[in-house]
Design a protein around this nucleic acid. Structure first.
Lengths: 357, 357
DNA sequence: CGCTGAAATGATAGCGCTAACATATGACTG
DNA sequence: CAGTCATATGTTAGCGCTATCATTTCAGCG
């Protein structure tokens, strides 16, 4: 059975080890063994010189790094991952890459993980839990050391995968009540209520709501709006516009047109995000609708341009960069075996009152 | 020497192979060998069932996939990468993740690579070639099957790495003249000249230029502007404002203020990108400067909001999503051993005339 | 009816690294 | 000055997969 073996007892480089293959592998790149040979040490010492420098004598380490440098040696991450069962990789699943909110979250994640040597694998689910599940399956092949997910609407299979995975997961954006889960975000519901109450305080009585995309976060804002209006006895479902299309400035403009056509007589409209509200603002300018005198307009997220439109846009600032950075920080704690300070981190929201209301 | 070995001649599952380790590795996940055992085939057949389905009899393949599914088997990408020397990974180095232009490029890359099973490793260089070099070194550890770089200003070390790497590289955004290099982009110089000529045709004679960030692409646009004005005998260096800060709407607004203070009497200003131009437009509205009557304003890139400002913004549309998608397509060709149709793909620019000029 | 060759499956080895344990060295202790 | 221990380095094995070549099976053929 072992007859084809090349004699397992044959001497393999008896003493110092200078007789192995001269250099490089299939790929033509030099390997750790090549460096070890040249530096006259064993492979594991080279490994340590890179990964656990404190375990190697300083001058030996310096020599090894020098030799490695001279040979153009680059560690092979796949081999390292295989041997150590650590991929130094984090899978991040977000709904969209064109929405500035998620891009900024991603930037926060990147800024937190990059200095620690972790790489990000980005998956874009297009707001679909089924697509998210498919992505997760793909990314599991890379044995990520941790997972960052957006929101809380996942398929049962996704939850099974995550549970079976044995790697930490942090949920971004929404806050979970399950005490076993980790989440970083802010209350979308509160945000919706906050803004609606502001509009009521300003004296508006016929407040509309424009919802697009209809993802869970938008719907939570809508619920906050409903709650506030019901509390004031002013809720009227005819003043809610829901459209499943993705958000954009031009959609905001066309929704404003539709609202005017619908003649529901709003004195204020709360758009579920700033893109939409900006589009509406532009369209008001075009149509000669005076904001806020004839119609007040409010947005959500506080994008950069919202401080510069005419009039400037009243909105709610969401801590999306912070959500990215803090979820990544929480994940780092978990990946490195520490229990984070808290499992549910609410980064809050802040109301930004401007000219449009 | 081999004395500590567990007798290499001991019988290892004599016939069918049911006596190996029951399941799963260090990580607790089932492996290809586990699936092979359960399905009563050899590991290599399981491998083929996944990677080269045409080599396995259809019903056997179906059974293997079923068993794998039932066991929750997920292939280990690190092991695959190590054994096959293919990481299914592409390193993408971009200057910024907050600039919409690069985000859209990234989206194009993602859309092209994702369906083919390649993952993206994103590096953000913050417009620094030195940082880019450091990133490249990091990403080489992942043995990417291909590299996508932005622009053409790389350190000598970066170029050495790339040459030694033996993996295809495609340069995005700028077009390279070197016949051995692969690039997809558009001429920034032409874009600058195109817009400036338009302004001249419209009768403007005192055309200013606002440059920020001062990356090679901005400077190329500036050169195009200079060329056009010199050709017309109208170039005046006092009308060029250069600021190294990163671009933003608010920077555009403050640059407009500075221009007015400087009293260089421009009748038109060409801003090196739309963020800036939008900020200037907003500031004009605020200060009561009539656009384009008192001052014409032009931008570059054609961002979504530019079609909606008051007045709408004249700009040059850049094919950034297409650049991402086509560079990735070119890279796919190269990674799969095909020579792409062309090594230098110019996706062109289109002038977008609107109200602001 | 033996030969040829394509199709299907298997055995072996090894990708390049690190975990786990083993060993060597020398500093310090009482 | 033997014993103890910390520090520095080495040996062995194996992570989970795929390249390569070997083997088996059987259809088609003259």
């Amino acid at each position: 059975m072992t007859s084809r073996h090349p004699d397992p007892l044959a001497p393999v480089s008896p003493s110092a080890g200078k007789t192995r293959k001269p250099r490089s592998s299939r790929t033509g790149r030099s390997t750790m063994a090549d460096v070890a040979n040249k530096a006259g040490v064993s492979a594991i010492t080279v490994s340590r010189a890179f990964k656990r420098p404190e375990l190697v004598a300083p001058d030996l380490r310096a020599r090894i790094l020098e030799v490695a440098q001279a040979m153009g040696y680059v560690p092979n991450q796949a081999a390292s991952a295989l041997a150590s069962a650590r991929s130094m990789t984090v899978a991040v699943l977000i709904p969209s890459m064109t929405n500035a909110v998620f891009v900024e979250t991603l930037a926060g994640i990147h800024d937190a993980l990059h200095p620690r040597g972790y790489q990000i694998l980005i998956g874009v689910s297009h707001y679909s839990p089924v697509e998210e599940e498919r992505l997760l399956r793909t990314y599991l092949q890379f044995q990520p050391d941790g997972i960052l997910l957006t929101g809380n609407d996942h398929t049962p299979a996704t939850q099974t995968y995550l549970a079976a995975l044995g790697r930490p997961t942090v949920h971004m954006m929404e806050l979970l009540d399950d005490p076993a889960s980790y989440s970083v975000g802010c209350s979308q519901f509160e945000g919706g209520r906050l803004m609606t109450r502001h509009l009521l305080e300003r004296g508006y009585r016929r407040v509309g709501f424009a919802a697009v995309q209809l993802d869970p976060r938008t719907l939570a804002r809508l619920e906050g709006y409903r709650q506030a209006l019901r509390d004031a006895g002013l809720y009227d479902p005819r003043r809610v516009w829901q459209v499943p299309e993705p958000s954009s400035i031009s959609l905001g403009a066309s929704m404003l047109d539709r609202m005017i056509e619908d003649q529901t007589d709003c004195d204020a409209v709360f758009f579920c995000n700033d893109d939409l509200a900006q589009g509406a603002l532009f369209q008001c300018q075009r149509r000669g609708v005076r904001v806020p005198e004839q119609l007040a307009i409010a947005g959500f997220n506080d994008l950069a341009a919202s401080a510069w439109t005419t009039p400037t846009l009243t909105t709610v600032a969401t801590p999306r960069y912070g959500i990215g950075r803090e979820s990544a920080a929480m994940l780092l704690d978990l990946m490195e075996g520490r229990e984070p300070p808290q499992r549910r981190l609410d980064l809050g929201l802040s109301f930004v009152g401007r000219e449009s209301t």
